[in-house]
């Protein structure tokens, strides 16, 4: 039986001076979007401009999403702190929870990770 992963919501702010925006880029139409970090900017247009300066030479698509409106759930936690929440497996039975690929090289702060065995 697949053990269900337990994720924690990590809701700390990302902003230090002004808003931050998560940046996603796509190199070619048949490629997936990749998360490439965040930029500081007051609004989406400026965030796109800033991200464009860094990735325009590379990316076909640049998406920017407000960091403050992003809900992040992860099995990883920097210091093992925070409230635990159950993973949303799309159903109410553990049996239907999909096996989740995991990389297990890093172990610090990841006590909640099930190994799928």
């Amino acid at each position: 039986m697949v053990e269900k992963a337990t994720r924690t919501e990590e809701a700390a702010p990302r902003a230090t001076t002004e808003r931050r925006f998560e940046v996603f880029v796509r190199e070619a139409a048949d490629e997936p979007l990749e998360h490439v970090g965040t930029v500081a900017a007051p609004d989406p247009d400026t965030a796109h401009e800033e991200a464009g300066k860094l990735f325009a030479w590379y990316a076909r698509d640049v998406w920017v999403c407000p960091s403050g409106e992003t809900h992040r759930y992860s099995t990883y936690s920097l210091a093992g702190e925070g409230d635990e929440v159950e993973a949303d497996s799309g159903g109410d039975s553990d049996d239907r929870a999909p096996p989740e690929p995991r990389v297990y090289e890093e172990t610090e702060g990841t006590p909640e990770v099930g190994d799928g065995a």
Binding site: T16, T38, E50, S77, L78
Partner: peptide, 20 residues
């Protein structure tokens, strides 16, 4: 707040966050 930057001066862009 844990954002990782290319240098200490380059605060406008972050590669990711150590909380992630």
């Amino acid at each position: 707040v844990g954002n990782v930057h290319l240098t200490q001066f380059w605060q406008g862009y972050s590669l990711g966050n150590v909380r992630e």
